[in-house]
Computed example of a mutant assay.
Amino acid sequence: MTDKQKILEYLKYKRISKNKFYVKTGLSVGFLDSGKSLGVDKLREILDIYHDLNPAWFLPGDGPMLKPENEVNEKEEQYVQSINIDNLIKKIEELSVQLGAQINENKHLHEINLRLIAEIDDLKKRKM
């Protein structure tokens, strides 16, 4: 069984559509049906997203398809702990500054629009 056939078997077992798989992994639509090999980088992405997929089954073909439940939970806990809260706060602050700048620009453009509308109205009145 090829690597891609194993992924398809996993998706079928988990009742995950190919489209959902493509969206979640960022792989191009039709990748699983193409003749190209999977590649290590793509495999890492898949294993990072689908934590219950057992690399021992996937690569050498040994062991069960799914990891034991306790291994899955440990992997997810490690992932959650690896998220750096300081980086998230910094990103929120950056986005807040950008939002403030956009709000100010919108106010300025609104004022310009009002002024132009008034000028148009004035020109219409003069023309009459």
Score class of each variant (00 low, 15 high):
M1D: 04
T2N: 05
T2D: 04
K4H: 05
I7Y: 01
L8R: 13
L8Q: 10
Y10N: 00
L11Q: 00
K12R: 10
K12H: 05
Y13K: 03
I16V: 08
S17I: 03
S17V: 01
S17E: 01
Y22P: 09
G26R: 00
G26H: 03
L27P: 10
V29G: 06
G30P: 09
D33L: 04
S34G: 08
S34T: 05
G35N: 02
G35A: 04
S37W: 04
S37F: 12
S37Y: 09
G39P: 14
V40G: 12
L43F: 10
L43G: 07
R44G: 09
R44D: 14
E45T: 12
E45Q: 12
E45I: 15
I49G: 02
I49Q: 01
Y50H: 00
L53D: 04
L53P: 14
A56E: 10
A56Y: 14
W57E: 02
F58V: 09
L59T: 11
L59G: 11
L59F: 15
G61D: 02
D62Q: 05
G63F: 10
P64T: 01
L66V: 03
N70G: 06
N70M: 07
E71D: 11
E76M: 15
E76I: 13
E77K: 15
Q78N: 02
Q78R: 05
Y79L: 11
V80T: 04
S82A: 04
S82I: 01
I83M: 06
N84L: 10
N84Q: 05
I85L: 06
N87I: 01
N87K: 09
L88G: 03
L88M: 09
K91I: 08
E94M: 11
E94W: 10
L95R: 10
Q98I: 05
Q98T: 06
Q98C: 12
Q102K: 12
I103F: 15
I103L: 15
N104C: 11
E105Y: 07
N106F: 15
H108Q: 12
L109D: 00
L109G: 04
E111F: 13
E111Y: 09
N113K: 12
N113R: 13
L114W: 03
R115N: 13
R115C: 14
I117C: 11
I117P: 04
E119M: 14
E119Y: 09
D122L: 11
D122C: 12
R126P: 09
K127P: 13
K127W: 15
